[in-house]
């Protein structure tokens, strides 16, 4: 009898090595192009922070987007269930059920959602689920020239993401919100 390979459930996440980020914004552009994000709103962006005093200055760049939380508050507050989470952890908006109440925008501690000025529904990062389902990488990951972003399956021990998290020190942003964010920033 042939052995059936039992596939463990996937849990997608992203590792971000912010020290490698050069603020070229290729990820922002790639996302805009891939997902046809309207002008004026963004699914991902780079936070810039300058610290220190001249001449001892330091500038850091933090790529930001939806954290695809384990317990997403945006999904909880949605009155119609338009905001939902796939089994593999990706948080999505079903545009047909979205009434545009904007409660999820307010409930997101990472300010990762926006009101789409064209459709009048809410938009957000999808981890490029349409690409991931074809076995490809999210557009921002694929395009990043300095390899800041690593996308993968937390439950797959062979994945680069899993190995980075096993060997490197990392942090998640604002864990005190209780959302269980799944963007891991390497230290």
């Amino acid at each position: 009898m042939a052995t059936k390979s039992v596939k463990t459930a996937q849990r997608y996440a992203m590792v971000i090595d912010a020290k490698k980020c050069i603020n070229c914004k290729a990820c922002v552009v790639a996302c805009k192009a891939e997902n046809q994000v309207p002008l004026g709103v963004f699914r991902n962006w780079i936070d810039e922070e300058t610290s220190g005093e001249y001449p001892h200055l330091r500038m850091s760049f933090d790529p930001e987007q939806c954290h695809h939380c384990a317990d997403p508050s945006c999904v909880r507050v949605c009155p119609t269930g338009a905001s939902w989470q796939r089994e593999d952890g990706i948080v999505l908006v079903n545009e047909d059920d979205c009434i545009g109440c904007k409660y999820c925008i307010i409930a997101c501690p990472y300010d990762a959602r926006y009101h789409n000025p064209e459709t009048h529904t809410v938009g957000k990062c999808t981890f490029c689920s349409h690409r991931v389902d074809r076995g490809e990488l999210p557009a921002c990951v694929e395009t990043c020239p300095s390899k800041v972003r690593v996308f993968g399956d937390l439950n797959d021990p062979k994945s680069q993401l899993h190995q980075l998290l096993a060997t490197r020190r990392y942090e998640v942003k604002n864990p005190q919100t209780g959302n269980g964010p799944q963007l891991y920033y390497l230290l």
Binding site: P79, T80, A82, D97, G100, C101, H120, T121
Partner: peptide, 14 residues
């Protein structure tokens, strides 16, 4: 205030 006012009824079906 809804982005899609004509869809308000959806609240009562979910």
């Amino acid at each position: 205030d809804l982005g899609k006012p004509m869809r308000f009824w959806k609240i009562f079906f979910h």
